[in-house]
Design a protein around this nucleic acid. Sequence first.
DNA 1: GGACCATTTTAGGTGTACCTAAATATTTAG
DNA 2: CTAAATATTTAGGTACACCTAAAATGGTCC
Lengths: 228, 228
Amino acid sequence: MTTRRVNLNTESVDNYLKAIFALGGPEEERVSSTALADRLGVAPASITNMLQKLAAAPVPLVEYESRRGVRLSTAGRRRALEILRHHRLLETFLYEVLGYPIEEVHAEAERLEHFISERFEERIDAKLGRPKFDPHGHCIPALNGKMSKQTSRPLSDIEEDGEFVVDSISDRDSVLLKRLNVHGITPGVRLRVLMSSRGEFVLRASGRFKSLQLSLSDAGAVRIRSIG
Amino acid sequence: MTTRRVNLNTESVDNYLKAIFALGGPEEERVSSTALADRLGVAPASITNMLQKLAAAPVPLVEYESRRGVRLSTAGRRRALEILRHHRLLETFLYEVLGYPIEEVHAEAERLEHFISERFEERIDAKLGRPKFDPHGHCIPALNGKMSKQTSRPLSDIEEDGEFVVDSISDRDSVLLKRLNVHGITPGVRLRVLMSSRGEFVLRASGRFKSLQLSLSDAGAVRIRSIG
DNA sequence: GGACCATTTTAGGTGTACCTAAATATTTAG
DNA sequence: CTAAATATTTAGGTACACCTAAAATGGTCC
Ligand SMILES: [Mn+2]
Ligand SMILES: [Mn+2]
Ligand SMILES: [Mn+2]
Ligand SMILES: [Mn+2]
């Protein structure tokens, strides 16, 4: 009755860990099976299956109690941050060195992040001059896994007109990303925000003439901070 | 009785096609199951299984008759050349742009070749100035799949002392590759060859003091052409 | 022309990562 | 507090890419 050891160095495991990390938020709260199923686009039953496997490993990658959600273990968090570092370095590299359009870097990085070696990671990091942020304004985790906390808030939380600085933009919706880019809404840019009726947001980047109207849900993809 | 269609866009299929292409040689001769099993490091039974699948596809990737070996179909050759182009562009890129040591480019390219997009391929090709040869001296197939025939011969075929130009060096043995590189034996270099007793080769690159002794089998990894 | 031997194929499994349907537990609402 | 709704897990599949062992084939050698 030898305990058969499973192989957890797979693209799939990477993606589960990244999803748990992302959904857990800065407080690393427990994540539900449904939320994961939704994010990863797989059936809830598949989630349960994988979580049981990740939790039962010799070095568990998650803490998991049946029906009580899941959170990353220390090893799981280390691995998630490693992949996130690959992802963001790749995005920066594709954008800066290979001249990709901003809305195309994410999909390419999403695949390659699982297959580049530590040497590749080191070489592009060096070539880019050890960047701290990716082209969407997201912080790149350091080699030791350290990552500074976000001080920004979602544009969708704003309740009054005002001026802000664009902190970062989610890379998950490439159509929206391109639309924002066309209107000059990129990380670091100064932004005038007007609340229209019915929870829509009207944005204008500094130095631009054309404004852009965003739905509440699209506004959730943009993070801002106060001018300063 | 619906014919279930299989997915042939996998890393595994890529590698089978590449192996058939490489083993078939310039004449694209039929390749035996054993030769493939040997090259790919899988059991002969696995080879049979995959070949049947590749041959039975709606657009067959190989021509296969039981017990008579395989060769690539037009579609299979196209795909093999596409992957070979990825591989060699990646090697050139890793070497030229990222400063990899020559003996490390192959392993990295071997993984990444299956996962880069057409955009990535195009961007590194452009960045490198549409190179025709990779850092081992191998021809990079064109976008349309055209590739010029080799005019070189293996060093191991030489039977008398002489001077030659290094054409290319196999990338499959990284230890040998590094050893050759240390002795200045790289594509384009002028090479003095002395036949020692017992089928060993003594090489000296032009402008170098130290010679290098190579076994017959290692000499098979070096291709040369006449000076001119 | 038959026996032998190497090659190749068939038959029957494995582990990974999914799936659907059914069962069960938890939460919410009346 | 219970019933309905929702969330989660269990049970029983599938496809892929491997594997080993056994059977079949085909060429060689006497
Ligand atoms: Mn991204
Ligand atoms: Mn991914
Ligand atoms: Mn190579
Ligand atoms: Mn490969």
